[in-house]
Structures are given as structure tokens and as C-alpha cells.
Design a protein around this nucleic acid. Structure first.
Length: 194
DNA sequence: CGACCGATTGACT
DNA sequence: GTCAATCGGTCGG
């Protein structure tokens, strides 16, 4: 399948966010391929958005958001978790889309190992139904910050156009910019975070 | 420098 | 429902 063109990312974050639903994220680690369908995202609007890491301008931590769209912004939070964003817009725009949940497709055994599922005790939907769970399952850490999504390590391809209705809501876990409805998800999909 | 807190999760009452 | 884990970013002094 064809990788999404760079132009896909050169639009405002809410538009890209909605269009990311149903797309397939592929991660190659050595010989193994992990993949999953994006089912939940949130848009962060850079300098215009008090909830965005880019709100106060460019720093060492957030500089990837100020680069060209189509790269991955990975950040470390709560002293233990990583979360991943798709950067959107052209250089210096600093908008991004947080990937909050995916539905696993290929490489589920490795995802389980990455997540520390020893047996099938835990419900399968808890494998990737949250932004830090997705990153842990896919082995996305500090080193993946800045990855070009048109390269061969992590990339996005077309999926089926989503049949589910797209739900919209306010974003989860933030204290500023609460009122904006910039969370999008596939309604009824089991892998959407609770 | 110290204090506070976060785009979260999992364990527990 | 509550709360600890655990550390880097940010802000005030």
C-alpha cells in the first residue's frame, strides 16, 4: 500500500486528525512488522492552543512540532510514559495530532510482550486503548522522536475509508483549552480509550 | 534552586 | 470512586 503523501500533513491539525481515523500505522522493528488502524486522535493547535506543548514557543523538547509536517513528535510524561503525535502543517506551524488509540492488526504477539502481558489475563482491548499504551505496544520511545513518517521505520498508509460514524468531543486529561472539541474517534470501536 | 504539575496508567478502597 | 508512581518542563525567587 502507498504511503500517505507529504501534502496529507500540510493542513490544519483538526482536518488531518479527522482524516487519520481509519489510516494504518506501520512500524518496522528488525524483521518484525507491527501495524494498527488509528481509531482515536486529538488535535493540538500549537501557539494558538494553551493545551499544546508549543503554546509558549519553541524549546528543545518541542522543536519537532515546529518542523515540517509528516514527522513524529514523541514526548515523555508523568515520569514514565511516552505519547506520540503526527506533526501537521509546514515548517514553523507547530500543530500536531496526538494518536490516542489504535486497533492492532499485525504483530500482536510482540505488542503483548512490549506491554508486559504475561498471559491473556488482561482484556485484549487494553493493549492499545490509550496514547501511552499504544506507544509501549509499538516500542515508541525517545529515539523515535522526529522520525520521518515517509521513511521505512514508522509510516502511514491508506486503510479502508472508515464505515463508522466519527464521534467528536473535548480533549482528555487537559486543564487549559478544555472547551475545544478537538478529539475525534470511530464511534463504537472497541479500541477507543475509556 | 525549589515547588508544582502534567496530552497517563494501573492498583486499590 | 481515589491515589501513587516517577521525572522533566516550567515558573517563581
Amino acid at each position: 500500500m502507498k504511503k500517505l503523501p507529504r501534502s496529507f500533513y500540510f493542513r490544519s491539525a483538526p482536518l488531518v486528525a479527522k482524516d487519520l481515523l481509519g489510516k494504518i500505522l506501520v512500524r518496522r522493528i528488525g524483521q518484525t512488522t507491527l501495524s494498527g488502524k488509528i481509531v482515536e486522535v486529538e488535535a493540538y493547535l500549537g501557539k494558538k492552543d494553551p493545551a499544546s506543548h508549543a503554546y509558549r514557543g519553541k524549546t528543545r523538547r518541542n522543536e519537532v512540532m515546529f518542523g515540517e509536517g509528516g514527522h513524529l513528535y514523541v514526548y515523555f510524561t508523568y515520569g514514565m510514559h511516552f505519547c506520540a503525535n503526527v506533526v501537521t502543517g509546514k515548517k514553523d506551524v507547530s500543530e500536531a495530532v496526538l494518536i490516542r488509540a489504535i486497533e492492532p492488526l499485525d504483530g500482536i504477539e510482540l505488542m503483548k510482550r512490549n506491554r508486559g502481558f504475561l498471559k491473556d489475563v488482561r482484556l485484549l482491548y487494553t493493549l492499545t486503548n490509550g496514547p501511552a499504551k499504544f506507544c509501549e505496544a509499538f516500542g515508541i520511545k525517545r529515539e523515535e522522536n522526529g522520525t520521518d513518517l515517509r521513511g521505512d521505520k514508522i509510516f502511514l498508509i491508506e486503510g479502508e475509508s472508515p464505515k463508522s460514524i466519527i464521534g467528536t468531543s473535548t480533549r482528555i486529561g487537559i486543564t487549559r483549552g478544555k472547551e475545544k472539541k478537538w478529539r475525534f474517534f470511530l464511534k463504537g470501536n472497541e479500541w477507543v480509550s475509556k
